[in-house]
Design a protein around this nucleic acid. Sequence first.
DNA 1: TAATTTAGCAACCAAATGGTTTCCTAAATT
DNA 2: AATTTAGGAAACCATTTGGTTGCTAAATTA
Lengths: 107, 107
Amino acid sequence: MRRDVFQAIADPTRRAIIGLIALQAMTPNALAEHFDMSRQAVSKHLRILTECELVKPEQQGREIYYLLEMEKMKEVDQWLEPFRKIWVARFDELDGVLDRMKKKNKG
Amino acid sequence: MRRDVFQAIADPTRRAIIGLIALQAMTPNALAEHFDMSRQAVSKHLRILTECELVKPEQQGREIYYLLEMEKMKEVDQWLEPFRKIWVARFDELDGVLDRMKKKNKG
DNA sequence: TAATTTAGCAACCAAATGGTTTCCTAAATT
DNA sequence: AATTTAGGAAACCATTTGGTTGCTAAATTA
């Protein structure tokens, strides 16, 4: 099976989990309360997130807190980077067009 | 089935397709030459990308050029935004720490 | 007009997903 | 010592994925 960030964020439940633990580390039980599914289903998502290294389990007594590995999130950002450049370039282009239009109207 | 940007970019072949057509619109056959799989397999990925509205087919004679819908890519960027804020905040925090260290060494 | 090229569509298949339920172990509580 | 609680592991299931091959239709070329 594929185990990378893109696989990790493909599922909406997993994106929601990421959103929740970004605010604060949480246990599987606490997380499960936010979803309409069994604790085990959430645990499975946590396992995938752990395998993708987007999340790190930290034992605390009999509880396990899952924390977000922010570094891994940057991989998505990095993949996006060249595309962001393209749309910024297009915006600048449009900017130039608008500029020329203004000048034309003035003159 | 789920049909959103995150599903679209989950597959490495699809990410590669996106990368290729970001440079220039391409036909399924032209795309297939870049991969070690059948033209039909690539076409299936194009269908998913089209359903996710990340790509737009444009008929030209008997050829169909697929172009990237850059706007849709921004949805990933938008989802990332709050997380980016967090890691920027952490960097600033670290910055503050380094600053205080410097001052301590000076004094 | 006949042959070729482009590309979508359908059927098929093995493997992966996303969920369930049941079971087990280890800590914490009584 | 017995019980409750937290949470992982396994078995199971339906659906989806990602690939294959074979077909057809339309446009192009000879």
